[in-house]
């Protein structure tokens, strides 16, 4: 049977064109922006204009002159100046960027491994014969799909230091820079450990029963079973989950936006939040584009490291 007709291009084309239009084009545009200093100024002018009455005729004052009013005219003026690599150079000397990199790296390097470890342990636990497993598994799905922004605000109320449910611990969950970063990490662990857990559980249940039997016959202890049977078989899945979690964790935005607002100060302001604020709150669009590109390059390096693994998974 021939599966090479030209209709394959017709089937594929809409999706490819769509991605080109809404991903590749914006990325190209933003690269262009990164080489410019874009300033948006509002020019304010005052002008005297004649006052009109309801019929559209000029109103006259007592002396018969047309009455005038002062009108403020605001004009938004955009200017783009080519500045070459200056935006990228500026990145290296910017203390906010340095802090955002520190926050993002700490977050990724602490949260992601913990999520994988907890997720793996929970998967091993749930892989046993336990009461009410379907219900418990369903409960574990909830955090993954809970709206991150709502989660952020909910945890804001949970970590609230005056009258919150954890106030009795006296831990400065939100007011201390390190405490706040730890809280962001904790929320991410709450939300994404279940994801690692679900995937690992699915993979564990795909392990053929015979392998466990064989190991048991050989007199393997539960620990041996974990180390010699489960872990090696799960390596491909672990690598995949690691990649997906790292790619997501580098995008961290919603939770700090909602829970800490990036604070106290900029102690929990990840790179995405900084780029968003620079671009769409302070409208330093060129510089924000350069920031976004720096993040993009980091993500691309991460993906490239895992690329082979990915190709095998989808081969």
């Amino acid at each position: 049977m021939r599966w090479t007709g030209n209709i394959r291009f017709l089937l594929l084309a809409p999706a490819v064109i769509w991605v080109l239009a809404f991903t590749v084009f914006p990325l190209g545009y933003s690269l262009y922006l990164a080489f410019y200093k874009i300033e948006q100024k509002v020019e304010v002018k005052r002008e005297k204009q004649p006052m009109l009455d309801a019929a559209g005729k000029p109103m006259l004052d007592d002396s018969g002159q047309p009455r005038t009013k002062n009108v403020v005219i605001k004009d938004q003026v955009n200017s783009a100046t080519f500045i070459g690599l200056d935006n990228f150079k500026r990145l290296f000397g910017d203390p906010q960027v340095k802090e955002a990199i520190r926050v993002t790296l700490l977050f990724v390097l602490i949260a992601v491994p913990l999520e994988l470890v907890f997720g793996f342990l929970l998967a091993v636990l749930f892989n046993q014969h336990i009461f009410g497993r379907p219900v418990l598994r369903a409960v574990m799905i909830l955090p993954i799909f809970a709206t991150p922004l709502a989660v952020g605000y909910t945890f804001f109320t949970i970590f609230y230091e005056v009258g919150g449910p954890l106030a009795w611990t006296g831990i400065p969950f939100l007011s201390n820079p390190n405490g706040a970063l730890a809280s962001v990490i904790l929320v991410d662990i709450w939300q994404w450990t279940p994801f690692c857990f679900l995937v690992f559980l699915a993979a564990l249940q795909g392990v053929p029963e015979e392998l466990y039997e064989a190991a048991r016959v050989d007199g393997a202890s539960p620990w041996d079973m974990l180390k010699e049977v489960m872990l090696p078989l799960l390596i491909p899945t672990i690598v995949l989950v690691l990649l997906l979690r790292m790619a997501e964790a580098l995008k961290l935005f919603d939770i700090p936006f909602a829970m800490t607002g990036g604070g106290p100060g900029v102690a929990t302001q990840p790179f995405s939040l900084l780029a968003f604020r620079t671009g769409l709150r302070f409208f330093d669009l060129g510089y924000a584009s350069a920031m976004a590109y720096a993040l993009l390059i980091v993500v691309m390096v991460v993906i490239t490291l895992f690329f082979r693994r990915l190709r095998v998974s989808y081969g």
């Binding site: 991605v19 914006p26 933003s30 790619a247 780029a275 968003f276 769409l280 584009s289 993009l296 993906i303």
Partner: peptide
């Protein structure tokens, strides 16, 4: 599979990289 991975790679892009040009 390279086409598949091409579609996938779009998913791992940081959205903040496209939000500014998309906004403009």
């Amino acid at each position: 599979r390279d086409i598949t991975v091409w579609f996938l790679s779009q998913r791992v892009l940081p959205p903040v990289a496209t939000v500014i040009p998309f906004y403009l």
